[in-house]
Every structure is written in C-alpha cells, then in structure tokens.
Design a protein around this nucleic acid. Structure first.
Lengths: 153, 153
DNA sequence: TAATACTTGACTGTTTTAATAGGAATTAAC
DNA sequence: GTTAATTCCTATTAAAACAGTCAAGTATTA
C-alpha cells in the first residue's frame, strides 16, 4: 500500500518548485540539497515530471526547473498516477490502470466491492489536493510552533 | 499504492472461510480451486494468517482451516497490516510501522501533513470492514442480477 | 568558449514478489 | 498399523521492481 521514494521525491521537488512559482527557475542542485535527494536520481525524476507536463526546464548557465502550469492546477493524484501508476489498492478496481484479476467472478467479487470504496477514498484525498494546497500548508506549518504539531512516533 | 497478490489472496481465502464459518474446516485444496490460487503459495499465506491469529488449522486427513475468531471480529485492516505491513502511503505517517523519512523537517513537512489525511481515509475504509461484512456483501452480490453491477473497464 | 545544466540511456546491486519444491509430521479411516 | 490425505516447515528460485549511479553528450549563456 505504499508510495515508492520515487513518488515521494517527485512531490517534494514539486513542493519546492511550487513555493518559488513565478520566480526564477530552480536548479537540480538546489532542490537536491534542500530536500536531501540524490542529485542524479532527482535528475531522472524531474525528467519524468517534465514528460508528464508538470514542469518545464531552462537549460544553460543559471538554468533549472519550474512548474509548467499554475500550482493550483497540478493535483497530487495526477503526479502520483504518472510516477507510480494506479491509485487503487488492487488493479481490478482501477479506472485508468485496470487489469483483470484472477478471482473467479469479478463482477460479484465482494473484495472488489470493498476495494472500490477504498479507492474512492484515496482518489478523493489526492484528487482534491494540489501543489498550491501543499504550498499553503507548508507556509502555515512553517509559522506554527513545533509543540503544536503532532509527532507520530 | 498497491496491495500485493499476497494480501489479495489472504482476503480471498478468509472470505471463503468466513462463508463456511461454524461448519467444518476447509482444505487448502478446496480454497485453491475455488479461488484460483496456486496451492503451494496459498499454503504459505494460510500459515501466515495462522500466525496472526486469524485462522486455525486441523491437520491430517480431512484437515484444513477455519477462522480462529468470529468473522465480525476480523477487520480487513488487521489482515492487511499483518500480511503487507503499513496501510499508510508513506512510512513516516504510519502509526504502527513508522520509519523516519529523509525530508529535512518532518514535523513541518506539508507532504506528510497531506499523507496523514490519506492514511486516515484508508484506515477508516479498512478498519470498519470485517470478514463478516465481506461475507454479507458476497451473499448479496450473488443474488443480484449481473446487469445491475457496475463493470469498470 | 568555458562553465553550467539538462538529456539520454545504459548499468548495477539489492530487495521484494510470486511462486515452487522436498520432505516431515499428523490424523482419519480402512 | 498401514495408507492416504493433509498440514507444517524450510529452502530455493526466477523475475521484476526499486534505488541509485555512471558516462557521454547536447544545449545555453555569461
């Protein structure tokens, strides 16, 4: 049920770009250092995000990346779908990445029935959150005192 | 974001056992055929479910498995957690399988903040569904005409 | 034109996944 | 008490996914 680090890094990178939206481009180097992500790996991920249309790049000296679209138009769901594939917990309930499963009668499968609901909830939680939302949360969290934040350990 | 077939098979097996709760034990063979799961693989999975306390076994001729507890006491969440680990999309928001992530400031991480909500939704959807629920859904689905069921392809 | 930064694609080591295999132990029934 | 059905336990394996690295090259611009 987990996201790979690939997806996590992608979101972290987009958050950085979102926070600087409208300003200059940001280099891989900068994002890599700021977010503690291996540079060479990040390179790949940004490339991937570029091919999905989420970011665009400027080459040459003082080049880098920026969001290709306004942050409020980029949903977490779209990012994760592009990097990781299906949001659904099993592929027989996925809308975009449907695959037949091995169960005897898919149409009457109770597990599928439940998993559809799980999928709905996941999609709901990720479709309605954009990079812009992520940015405003980040700004808000930055101003709050740490003791107000709930640590879960 | 996906469940492995391991988890899926476990649920399918438990559904079969749930539908026969209170009757005799069911053999691996039977479940394997009924649910189209490789026998030797299912063996491992049932063993795993046994160690989690969800099922119990009877050895020897006409041996097999049955639920170790009433179906309404076994939640999907507990099964998936035991077989797959965390329900959370990233481990830094998991309650039981917490692991530190590489982000610079976890307490103020906006992604973590969002993912906590995703986690809540997933947990909510799986904690409140039991094997008993799965069984009643299965029975209901069995009586409904197929054309009433929504195919998602 | 040198430095910076992106591009492309291959490469590698590790871990996970999805099985498969062999044999030991248990039990019901004949 | 032998046999056949069945679970139990421990390995092994083949393939895929994951996480990351590397090299050589192309484009841009100060």
């Amino acid at each position: 049920m987990k996201l790979s680090v690939h997806g996590e890094y992608a979101l972290r990178a987009l958050l950085v770009l979102g926070l600087h939206y409208g300003e200059t481009v940001i280099s891989i180097q900068t994002i890599s250092q700021e977010q503690n992500i291996p540079k060479r790996f990040l390179e790949q991920i940004l490339n991937d995000l570029k091919s999905s249309g989420a970011v665009e790049s400027k080459r040459g000296v003082s080049g880098g990346y920026r969001l290709a679209r306004p942050p409020q138009e980029i949903t977490l769901a779209s990012v994760v779908r592009h990097i990781e594939g299906a949001l659904a917990p099993i592929s027989c309930v996925s809308e975009r990445f449907y695959e037949k499963c091995s169960c005897p009668d898919e149409a009457r499968c109770a597990i599928r029935n439940v998993m559809k609901e799980v999928r709905e909830k996941i999609v709901d939680a990720m479709e309605n959150v954009t990079i812009a939302d992520l940015c405003s949360r980040a700004k808000k969290l930055a101003t709050e005192p740490v003791h107000a934040l709930d640590y879960v350990i």
